[in-house]
Write a protein that binds this DNA or RNA. Structure first.
Length: 519
DNA sequence: TTGTGTTTTATTGCCTCC
DNA sequence: GGAGGCAATAAAACACAA
C-alpha cells in the first residue's frame, strides 16, 4: 500500500493534476516528508530514476520531488551556514580562531557560497567518500562492516539527526549535548575527518530544539576550548584566560575524595589511559537522553540519534552522484549493494527482524560499546515509544508527538533500502500514523502535536536564552521521569562501557556532563 | 481576530558540466 | 544546447502573541 492509498490527505493522481492547475501550493503530508527525508538521508542527489520512483511512491510529481530535494539541500546548507555563523561568533567571543574549531572557512558570516568550498564539493564527497578516499562499493561495504564490527565509533559515528545535515557533523564533534556516542572526530581510520561544510552536510542531521540552540551557543565554545586544551578541560573549571595559583600538594586527592564523580572526570582527563568508572559515565551520560524529547521532529531526533546511528550516511559515501551525469544505475541496483545493509539501523531490525541490532553489536564488540547510551537507549526509547503507540499514551511520554512515534517505527524499518524501504516504512508507519493523526485531530490533539513540532522547531532556530530556559523548564518534568526510568533500566548496562570506549572520547563525557548540568 | 514571524513549497534565472 | 543544481524570490501555510 502506498502512501497515496493510505492517506486520503495525500495527493492522488487527481491531485497531482489539480496541483498543477491550481498553483496553490500544497503541504506535503508528514508521511511524504518523512519519506523524503529518509530518502534524502541516503541520497542527497537522487538520480532521475530515483526521483521518479519516489515521486510515484509518494504520489508527487517528479518536479515536486526534485524541487523538494533541491530545497532540502538548500536548507541543509542554510543550516550549516547558521551553524557556522554561530560558531564563528562564539569563537570570536571566546578569542578562539574559528578555523581551529570547525575547519571551516568563514567570511563575515560563515558564508558558504559556492566558491567557498569548491575544493571539496558535496558531490565530490558523494562520489569519493567522506574521507577523501576512493572506495569502491565493496570497499566501502567492507569499511563499513569493519567499522561496525570493530569500531564502536564507527557505528556511533553514523548517528545523527536525520535529515541531514552537517550540523550533525559540527555537533557530533563530540560536543553534541545529547550525543552519547563516542566522538565522531574519528574517521574509520581514526583520523580526524576534514570538516568541510559541504561535506559535512552529508554527515547527518542537526540537533534540534533546545539542544540545538544550546549546542550552537555552548558547544562551539566548548569545542573550541577542547580543541585548544585537549582533554584537560573541565566544564566546571576556571574561566578561560584566568590564571590561578598552583594547586597545593594533596589538593587533588582531596577533591577526589570529596567529589568522586567529578574527580573521575578530572582523573580521566589527566589519565586518559585509565578506564572510567562505568557508573559514573553511565550516570553522567544518562541525562543526555532526555534531550531527545526536546527536539523538533522528535522523530527526526530519534532517527538521527538513534535510527541514523548507522545511516549516517554511510550511504552517502556511495550514493553521491559523481558530477552531474546520470547514473546508469537503476534505482534497484542502486540500493542493492549499499553498505547500508550493515548499518546499525538495519541491524536494529536484524536481517530477519529477529536479531536486535544493538544487542548483537554489543555482544559482538565485547562490551557494550555505546550500548549503554546511544544504542541501549535508542532501543528502549523505541520500545517505549512503540508501547506508547499501542497503549495509548502511557505516563511519561505524553509529550511525545506523533512524529516521534512515526520515527520510532521508521527506525524499525530498514532504512537503507531507499525507496523500497521507504515504502515499507511508510506502509507500517502510515497505518499507525494516519490512524493516530486522525485520532488526534479528532480530539484536537493533532494541532497540538503539530504545534509542538513547530515550537521545538522555533526553539531550534531562535538562539533565545529565554526560550531555551522556558523549554528546559517545561521539559524537565518529563525528562526527569524519563531519566529515572532510563537510569533504572540502564543499571545493568552501565558496566559495559569499556576502557577503550571511555578513552574514545573526552567529548563524550563532556557532552554528557553538559546535558547533565541541565538537570 | 488580527498582525507578525517562520517554515515550506513553487517558480525562475543563472551557472556548470557534458 | 540540454540537464541538473543552486540561489533568490514569492507566496501559502502555519503558529503565536496581543
Amino acid at each position: 500500500m502506498t502512501v497515496m492509498e493510505e492517506s486520503g490527505e495525500l495527493q492522488s493522481e487527481e491531485n497531482k493534476v489539480s496541483i498543477e492547475k491550481n498553483k496553490k501550493r500544497r503541504l506535503k503530508t508528514p508521511a511524504q516528508v518523512m519519506a523524503l527525508e529518509k530518502f534524502y538521508d541516503e541520497h542527497k542527489y537522487p538520480t532521475e530514476e530515483m526521483k521518479s520512483e519516489l515521486a510515484e511512491e509518494l504520489g508527487l510529481t517528479e518536479k515536486q520531488v526534485a524541487g523538494w530535494f533541491c530545497h532540502r539541500r538548500l536548507k541543509d546548507k542554510r543550516l550549516l551556514k547558521d551553524e557556522t555563523c554561530a560558531n564563528g561568533r562564539q569563537d570570536r567571543s571566546s578569542g578562539i580562531v574559528q578555523d581551529h574549531v570547525s575547519g571551516l572557512r568563514q567570511d563575515s558570516c560563515g558564508s558558504t557560497k559556492h566558491g567557498d568550498n569548491k575544493h571539496l564539493d558535496l558531490k565530490e564527497v558523494e562520489s569519493h567518500g567522506y574521507y577523501g578516499n576512493d572506495f569502491s562499493v565493496a570497499d566501502m561495504t567492507y569499511e563499513h562492516n569493519r567499522d561496525y564490527n570493530e569500531d564502536v565509533d564507527g557505528m556511533d559515528n553514523t548517528s545523527s539527526e536525520s535529515s541531514s545535515s552537517l550540523q550533525d557533523q559540527l555537533f557530533s564533534q563530540g560536543q553534541d549535548p545529547y550525543n552519547m556516542e563516542p566522538s565522531r572526530y574519528l574517521t574509520p581510520n581514526r583520523a580526524l575527518p576534514p570538516l568541510v561544510p559541504k561535506a559535512a552536510i552529508n554527515i547527518g542531521y542537526k540537533p534540534s530544539g533546545y539542544l540545538k540552540v544550546k549546542g550552537e551557543i555552548e558547544n562551539a565554545t566548548i569545542t573550541a576550548v577542547k580543541k585548544q586544551l585537549g582533554r584537560n578541560y573541565r566544564e566546571d573549571g576556571p574561566l578561560l584566560g584566568v590564571e590561578f595559583d598552583p594547586v597545593p600538594p594533596g589538593a587533588f586527592e582531596c577533591q577526589i575524595a570529596a567529589d568522586p564523580v567529578d574527580e573521575s572526570l578530572v582523573f580521566h582527563a589527566v589519565n586518559p589511559s585509565l578506564p572510567s568508572p562505568p557508573e559514573i559515565s553511565a550516570v553522567k551520560r544518562q541525562p543526555a537522553l532526555n534531550s531527545r524529547y526536546d527536539s523538533k521532529y522528535g522523530s527526526h531526533d530519534l532517527d538521527m540519534e538513534v535510527g541514523d546511528l548507522g545511516s549516517l550516511h554511510d550511504t552517502d559515501l556511495l550514493d553521491r552522484k559523481p558530477g552531474r551525469h546520470k547514473q546508469g544505475q537503476t534505482f534497484q541496483s542502486y540500493t542493492n549493494h549499499l553498505p547500508h545493509r550493515n548499518s546499525p539501523l538495519e541491524l536494529y531490525e536484524g536481517p530477519t527482524g529477529a536479531v536486535p541490532a544493538y544487542n548483537t553489536m554489543g555482544s559482538k564488540h565485547g562490551e557494550g560499546m555505546r550500548s549503554d547510551s546511544a544504542s541501549y537507549q535508542s532501543d528502549h526509547f523505541e520500545e517505549d515509544l512503540v508501547v506508547k503507540e499501542t497503549d495509548s499514551l502511557p505516563h511519561c511520554y505524553d509529550n511525545v508527538n506523533p512524529k516521534k512515534i512515526q520515527r520510532s517505527e521508521h527506525i524499525k524499518s530498514k532504512p537503507s533500502k531507499s525507496l523500497k524501504n521507504s515504502r515499507v516504512f511508510l506502509d507500517s508507519e502510515e497505518t499507525g500514523l494516519s490512524s493516530r493523526i486522525a485520532k488526534e485531530e479528532k480530539f484536537g490533539g493533532g494541532k497540538k502535536a503539530r504545534k509542538q513540532y513547530h515550537d521545538s522547531e522555533r526553539v531550534r532556530i531562535l538562539p533565545n536564552e529565554t526560550m531555551i530556559a522556558k523549554r528546559v523548564k517545561d521539559d524537565l518534568p518529563q525528562q526527569q521521569n524519563l531519566k529515572h526510568a532510563l537510569v533504572a533500566e540502564m543499571q545493568p548496562q552501565k558496566n559495559r562501557r569499556s576502557a577503550t570506549e571511555m578513552l574514545s572520547s573526552f567529548s563524550e563525557d563532556e557532552t554528557a556532563e553538559t546535558s547533565y548540568s541541565l538537570d
